[in-house]
Design a protein around this nucleic acid. Structure first.
Lengths: 138, 138
DNA sequence: CTTGACCTTCCATGAACTGGAAACCTCATC
DNA sequence: GATGAGGTTTCCAGTTCATGGAAGGTCAAG
């Protein structure tokens, strides 16, 4: 099938499918006489697989590894689990980082009047975070 | 002072300071006869300000706006607060997205044996998420 | 044979830097 | 004045994962 249909069936945009071909993540099963990429059901399956993995935040390189495990009948599920655990750890640390930002931002917005006057704890904090809290309290 | 000292005092790498100059975020106060960038205390203050804002996840464009508000004695704190609120909302939605990934990944790793056998709920899920849960239950 | 949809390749862009190469400046020492 | 170390300059490339667009080739229908 043409790239357009593979896109429709897999949910991956044609442009992205070309990109995956370029980086040797998912190659078309062949080319037609006219130079069109040709995809079979197995390729579409891979495209779907990668779409799901990307949706769970796996990097393209992770997807490459996962795809190869997926295609390997002799794989050990431990390898998949370990890859996933590492990814999960990255996600958790990202969440922690964002939560920390969130707390600070919530605290600052709560203390900012948000009126037409210039006084602003948010700017004070950005100008010197080590000082503004103490000042606010003292 | 030279870029190296500005870097030391502000905590922003010299390379990044050059980049901020290039994108007109923070310009050096001048240039020496030899062509070296020259930074004064006010510039260092801006660098610190931007470092803090970046640390809270604000985009460089947000930093540009915040810096201009910081320098504006007639600013309305409402403008700062509104910018911050938008940023906070983006962070919260990012957290929600990551939390959703996290839940799925945790569920999958919990169900994966992680041994030397090929059976793997994680790969099953990636191959077809709409099916694997039902299969697991049914 | 022409239209229109679809496909091709190639190049540019985004976000925010970071690394490295080749050359230049500065200051101290001999 | 030469030399050497260390800081600085500019410019180019690379990172991640696509996405948008231009110029042109292919294909099926009428």
């Amino acid at each position: 099938m043409n790239i357009g249909e593979a896109a429709k069936l897999s949910g991956v945009p044609a442009k992205t499918i070309r990109y995956y071909d370029e980086i040797d993540l998912i190659k078309p099963s062949g080319r037609t006489a006219g130079g069109y990429r040709d995809y079979d059901e197995r390729a579409v399956e891979s495209l779907r697989f990668v779409r799901h993995a990307r949706g769970l935040g796996f990097s393209v390189e992770d997807c490459r590894a996962l795809l190869s495990l997926y295609r390997d009948r002799n794989r050990a599920s431990a390898d998949v689990k370990s890859l996933t655990a590492k990814h999960l750890a990255r996600i958790e640390s990202k969440i922690a980082e964002l939560e920390s930002m969130k707390r600070t931002l919530q605290d600052l917005t709560a203390r900012c009047q948000g009126d037409d006057r210039p006084d602003c704890p948010i700017l004070d904090n950005l100008a010197g975070p080590e000082r503004s809290r103490a000042e606010a309290r003292g």
